[in-house]
Amino acid sequence: MSDSKDFDTIESVRARLGKDLVILAHHYMSDAVARHADHTGDSLELSRRVPGLEARYIVFCGVFFMAETAAILAKPGQKVLIPEMNSRCVMSDMAPAWLAAKVLDRLEEGGLTATPLTYVNSSAAVKALVGARGGSVCTSANAKTMLSWAMARGGHTLFLPDVRLGLNAADWIALPKEDRNILDIREHGQAIDLERARRAKLLLWPGQCVIHSRFKPESIRKARAESPGCLVVVHPECHPNTVALADACGSTSLIIRFVAEAPEGSTVYVGTEFNLVNRLAQQYSGVKVVRPLLHSTCSNMEKITEPNLARLLENLDGSPSVEVDEALKEPAKLALQRMLDACAPKKG
Rank of each mutant, 00 (worst) to 15 (best):
V103L: 01
L167H: 06
S2M: 10
K5E: 03
I255G: 06
L309G: 01
L158Q: 01
Q78H: 09
R153F: 03
K346D: 09
H295S: 12
R291C: 15
L183M: 03
Y119F: 14
T157C: 15
V233D: 06
L294C: 10
N308I: 08
R338F: 01
E326C: 13
T115R: 10
I256H: 13
F159V: 02
P292W: 03
D317L: 10
N300S: 14
E306H: 11
P236A: 10
R16T: 13
A124D: 05
L254F: 15
R199G: 08
D38Y: 11
D20F: 01
L112M: 06
P240R: 12
S43T: 12
C138A: 04
P76C: 06
A281V: 08
F60Y: 11
A70C: 09
R180H: 11
H26C: 06
G62S: 14
A174C: 08
L203N: 00
P96Y: 02
N241Q: 06
A37S: 10
R196N: 04
V137I: 15
P320F: 02
K222D: 09
R224N: 07
T9L: 07
A225V: 09
G286I: 03
T9G: 05
G154C: 05
A327N: 07
A327L: 10
H156N: 13
V120S: 08
P206V: 00
I182C: 00
D31K: 15
H239T: 10
I72D: 04
R14S: 14
I256L: 06
L104Q: 05
E306I: 09
I255A: 11
I255N: 12
G110P: 10
C61E: 12
D31S: 15
M85L: 13
D6Q: 07
A95M: 15
S136F: 06
H39W: 12
C298Q: 09
E314H: 05
F60G: 00
L160M: 14
L202N: 13
V324T: 03
D162N: 08
A246Q: 04
L202I: 03
S43M: 07
I192T: 02
Y28N: 08
P263A: 02
R338W: 02
A169D: 12
V277C: 12
T272L: 09
I220M: 11
V80W: 04
A170S: 14
R180A: 15
E84G: 01
